[in-house]
Design a protein around this nucleic acid. Structure first.
Lengths: 140, 140
DNA sequence: GACACAGTTTAGAATCATTCTAAACTGAGT
DNA sequence: ACTCAGTTTAGAATGATTCTAAACTGTGTC
């Protein structure tokens, strides 16, 4: 995105999260925070940023995705052991996972009601509840 | 387990699942199906079987765990991207995952009620619902 | 505007769980 | 005992991710 208005928005977004803005971090933010929610892998982000005019190394993609996650700009979603997804929707919600094509779809938090959850073991507190609804193709 | 009664039980269990019983498969079954439910990784099973008198290669541990999973004797639980857990409890239930020590604890199915789940996208059907409750140490 | 230095980026090596390969082995039926 | 599909194996290969150590860059200081 060469749009200077966009650029300022992204810099502000990083600043607000306490992250120093650099050329690479803005390029990645432009891909991730374009207004629509996404589920992406590091490789996908790397491929996308390589197409642009502002190349970023794979190591930096990993570093930055983790940094954004720590800063609360992304959520990590563990769905399959072979790859980690990063979710730009950081609000409470759940996921459909389609095994056929490896894609994730959001389920709004209020579509799922969890009740009667047992208390966590002593010395531990509940951090997050992830509901993953695994899908398969209907063998018609 | 050198107990011949045990041995016959395990062979029968494999047979019933349509799996030919071999020395290796029985040795692994002895570790997995001892009457108590477990959450194990391939490495853990490999370490355990190596201590016994009936060594099994790591490749066979992987092959066999997957075969047992396909046969419905185990369930695969994906909780963290760095390892896969195999669960000897194949009934419907959910999990606490303790990030502090990487351990899994069962949550009985009837402790969690999921309602208002949206319908799966067209051409897909719901295969399984996994609820993972992530725990962290209480910072006291 | 040049200087310094912590923070950042990078290519490539390293890691680690898992899968693959291709050869040796084994069990069930003749 | 003989055969052949099915099984096991060591070690190589894979693939995502992390590490390393060296080069680079942004920000504050004069």
């Amino acid at each position: 995105m060469r749009n200077p208005r966009q650029n300022d928005r992204l810099k502000a977004l990083l600043q607000a999260a306490g992250i120093r803005s650099t050329r690479q971090r803005v390029a990645l933010a432009a891909i991730l925070f374009d207004g629509t929610h996404k589920h992406v892998t590091a490789e996908q982000v790397h491929a996308a940023v390589r197409k642009g005019k502002s190349p970023v190394s794979l190591a930096t993609v990993y570093n930055t995705l983790h940094q954004y996650t720590t800063a609360g700009l992304l959520h990590e979603v563990v769905i399959s052991s072979s790859r980690v997804y990063f979710d730009t929707n950081t609000g409470e919600h759940h996921h459909f996972f389609d095994d056929a094509d490896g894609k994730l779809y959001d389920i709004p938090a209020d579509s799922v009601r969890i009740s009667r959850l047992p208390p966590p073991p002593p010395g531990r507190k509940l951090e997050r509840v992830d509901v993953i609804v695994r899908l398969v193709a209907t063998k018609s």
